[in-house]
Amino acid sequence: MTLALFLEQLLNGVQLGLTLFLMAAGLTLVFGVMGLINLAHGALYMTGAFVCATVAGATGSFWIGLGAGALAAAAAGAVVEVAVIRRLYARDHLDQVLATFALILIFSEGARLIFGDRPLWLDIPAALSGTLALPGGAQYPLYRLAIIGIGLGLAGGLWWLINRTRIGMQIRAGEADREMIAALGVDIRRLYTLVFALGAGLAGLAGALVGALQSVQVGMGEPVLILAFVVIVIGGIGSVKGALAGAVLVGVIDTMGRVFLPATFGLFMAPAEATATGSALASMLIYLVMALVLALKPKGLFPADA
């Protein structure tokens, strides 16, 4: 293993982790404040990517597309919250699962109707298409570094929003005691819509950012959604700090496992078998880590109520 390869994969892992954080932050806030499990979060991620690809294609500017994608996802989130999600807060988790599963079906088919069946492609903006030399001699794409930067910036911004602003105070109070802050005169319905739209906007932004690395297609949000669930379970549900720690952990372990496990097995197995066993085990690795964390700390690494 060379230093260059190690650094490159570490950065890839951190980049995946920060994308996951953008997804997980919204999910965990929505759960923490409203007690809602939202399977349709991946649909909002997809919405961000589709709108970004379409707007960027029409205007020629990736950045306008990125903004439009995040705003469209936030707007879609607000509409869905008012139309459907609002009715689910008092229901049990089963109803929430089913209604948000129904939303996935509606969003997926809706996206096919509006954007067509074929995947869209999104180009990396010209300013970020270059690479940066890493110590050890590897060239690392600037765009991925930009995603890391944006992710860290948003994590900081979210920390500031939650810990240093009036809205954030209301969000924290909402997590602690919903009835009480409603009794104190905070418009709780508006706060819920706001939190949901904020989470949706973050998911849309993540989708738009990742859209330039992969193809933009229906169903792209679901693998990310499930990874975000793993992140939340590992990090501790309802905790934004836990979401960040869990996301980076999952991102790095997953990326490193995929690269280095087949190589490790190659030390004592035939190459073909080593690749097969290594990649099979690598794809299961984060779930095994999740099982281990649950066995040791059933509430996750950073439980929200600690």
Binding site: V233, S279, A280, M284, L294, P298
Partner: peptide, 27 residues
């Protein structure tokens, strides 16, 4: 493993383990 938890955790964890089996099938 999953029944050590309840509610939302249980939903997410069963989903995650099923996804693990899915990836095992794919690979």
């Amino acid at each position: 493993v999953s029944l050590r938890t309840q509610g939302v955790h249980f939903i997410m964890i069963t989903l995650a383990f099923a996804q693990m089996v899915y990836y095992l099938g794919v690979s």
